[in-house]
Amino acid sequence: MEAENHTGLSQFLLQGLSDDPELQPVLFGLFLSMYLVTILGNLLIILAMSTDPHLHTPMYFFLSTLSFTDVCLICTTVPKLLVNIQAQNKDISYIQCLTQVYFFLLFLGMDNFLLTVMAFDRFVAICHPLNYTIIMNPWLCVRLVLMSWLIMFWVSLIHVLLLNQLTFSTGTEIPHFFCELSHLLKVASSDTLVNNIFLYVVAALLGVFPVTGILYSYSQIVSSLMRMSSSVSKYKAFSTCGSHLCVVSLFYGTGFGVHLSSAVTHSSQRTMIASVMYTVVTPMLNPFIYSLRNKDMNRALGRLLSKAASSV
């Protein structure tokens, strides 16, 4: 194939999840359903927390931000997938692909940081309850979120600028259902050494430090709980961490599963199926995890739905 640079390349081809025509309506219905459930569930979480004064606390501020990033994350990949299935084509323009890479990295990284910040919030609440309101003041909460946005803004931008320097062959097919950075680097025609070095360094830093922070926070939480004499107090304190632990396990478990599947198998189909877990399924399940395991959230959602029903 004739190689072209990025200025002459107008589009890529996305392999998609399946070429079977009989599966296309099933895939369209499945992903449309998951997309709508994710949008509705996370928006309900955001509305409930913004309208209920009892939920105007640091924990729920971070949770509403997480719900917002989950909505943005699924909006980055699924709409284009649905359009391609409905139109029965695999095209994605070069600009759309780079845009998808940028926002996917941005929102995925934000999920990573927010889960770490939420672990720190639980650590302060359980290990330093008397100083909780002083330490987790609104200004610190806003600064933690803004710092996370700023870091991921620049990391994602550098990735895209480096990607923009690569050349690709005409009609390049990406073995995925969206423009995923590592897959783009594999199909590039030019040398990707700098891109791969930056990718691995960033993945190591943004993986090791947040996970270390989460593990440290929970080690201190467990240590604090062990010193409590009352089993009721232990259960009440740790119950506030249950939803967060479920989301953390789901997020990092599915992410690890994707990288493990890509390392042990060369099947792009299996890798794509594993990717669906953390790009689509995880954002969809997060609202259910927090609403089902949280009494305050259940009450807030009940009041919100009651208001909506009475106004009809």
Rank of each mutant, 00 (worst) to 15 (best):
S190F: 04
L17S: 09
T279H: 14
R270L: 15
V145R: 07
F256T: 12
N196L: 10
D111C: 07
N195P: 04
A87C: 12
V232G: 03
M136T: 06
L43Q: 02
I174Y: 06
A274Q: 05
F31I: 13
E173R: 14
F31R: 09
G109D: 04
A308I: 15
G257H: 06
C72R: 13
I39L: 10
V78F: 08
Y235M: 08
L73C: 06
W154E: 09
I174H: 09
I158V: 15
S148R: 04
L245E: 01
L304Y: 14
L181S: 07
F113S: 12
I45D: 06
N131T: 03
S249Q: 06
L36R: 01
F256E: 00
F251H: 11
P58H: 05
Q269T: 13
V264Y: 02
M277Q: 15
V264M: 02
N164S: 15
D52C: 08
M226G: 04
M228A: 13
F103E: 02
K295W: 01
P53C: 04
I46A: 05
L215N: 03
H56A: 07
T170F: 04
A263K: 13
S306D: 15
V211D: 04
M228Y: 04
Y290W: 08
M226K: 15
M297A: 08
L161R: 13
P287N: 07
T167Q: 14
I158S: 06
I74H: 09
I39N: 01
G255H: 06
P25W: 05
S310A: 13
L144G: 01
A48S: 15
E2T: 10
N286P: 01
S169L: 06
S182K: 09
V312N: 05
D296V: 02
M284S: 11
A125V: 02
S261R: 01
S275D: 07
